[in-house]
Simulated assay, not measured.
Amino acid sequence: MDTSAAHDHRPTPAQQALDALAVNAEDQAALDTLAHSDVLVPVPDDALDEEGAEASSLALPVLEQPGGEPVVPVFTTEGELGRLLPFISRYRLVPLGALAAQWPDEDLALAIDGNSAHALTLTSRRVRTLLAR
């Protein structure tokens, strides 16, 4: 019996944390797991690598949700990224807690795994208060 395909569909710890937060938005263990997880931040293919740009700097991709709210999409796996943004082939792997700790003050939501079964969207304030570690 080939079990490799079954392993491919197992939720990652970050996805399990997202599922737990869907049930209880204040689940501290799930928030800790999520804050310590790496996420994929899409880099548009037409983005140029600026000479002299600091390796620690990161340009956040901002999409507009229906209704006009700006949101930064991040993903827990390459598969989730490919399903929602198939035209993106590059990304940066970033610890979510570090990203949250430097979250801009502007009203900018964070969407984790977009329209997937594990999706979670947080307001700017909740990103900074719940995930910044």
Score class of each variant (00 low, 15 high):
residue 32 D to F: 10
residue 20 A to N: 06
residue 12 T to A: 11
residue 14 A to R: 00
residue 22 A to D: 10
residue 37 S to Q: 10
residue 23 V to K: 11
residue 42 P to R: 01
residue 19 D to L: 12
residue 41 V to D: 01
residue 29 A to H: 07
residue 39 V to Y: 02
residue 23 V to A: 13
residue 28 Q to E: 14
residue 47 A to T: 15
residue 22 A to L: 10
residue 41 V to P: 01
residue 27 D to L: 01
residue 41 V to M: 02
residue 17 A to G: 00
residue 46 D to W: 12
residue 16 Q to N: 13
residue 29 A to I: 08
residue 47 A to F: 15
residue 21 L to I: 09
residue 24 N to E: 13
residue 30 A to F: 02
residue 32 D to G: 15
residue 31 L to E: 03
residue 22 A to F: 05
residue 12 T to E: 07
residue 21 L to V: 10
residue 48 L to C: 09
residue 13 P to F: 09
residue 21 L to G: 08
residue 16 Q to I: 11
residue 18 L to V: 06
residue 44 P to K: 01
residue 29 A to Y: 03
residue 44 P to E: 02
residue 49 D to Q: 10
residue 28 Q to S: 13
residue 45 D to F: 11
residue 13 P to R: 05
residue 29 A to S: 13
residue 38 D to F: 04
residue 38 D to E: 04
residue 45 D to C: 12
residue 49 D to H: 06
residue 35 A to C: 12
residue 27 D to G: 02
residue 15 Q to N: 07
residue 45 D to R: 12
residue 21 L to S: 08
residue 26 E to F: 07
residue 39 V to F: 04
residue 23 V to R: 10
residue 43 V to S: 01
residue 24 N to C: 09
residue 25 A to N: 15
residue 39 V to W: 01
residue 33 T to Y: 11
residue 24 N to S: 13
residue 40 L to G: 02
residue 26 E to G: 12
residue 22 A to H: 09
residue 40 L to T: 00
residue 34 L to F: 03
residue 34 L to E: 05
residue 41 V to R: 00
residue 25 A to H: 14
residue 41 V to F: 01
residue 17 A to Y: 00
residue 30 A to I: 03
residue 42 P to I: 07
residue 31 L to C: 06
residue 14 A to Y: 04
residue 22 A to M: 07
residue 20 A to P: 04
residue 34 L to T: 03
residue 37 S to P: 08
residue 24 N to L: 07
residue 30 A to E: 01
residue 29 A to G: 10
residue 43 V to L: 07
residue 17 A to C: 00
residue 36 H to R: 12
residue 23 V to Q: 11
residue 48 L to Q: 14
residue 17 A to M: 00
residue 37 S to W: 08
residue 24 N to I: 05
residue 19 D to F: 05
residue 24 N to H: 09
residue 40 L to E: 00
residue 47 A to M: 15
residue 35 A to T: 11
residue 25 A to S: 15
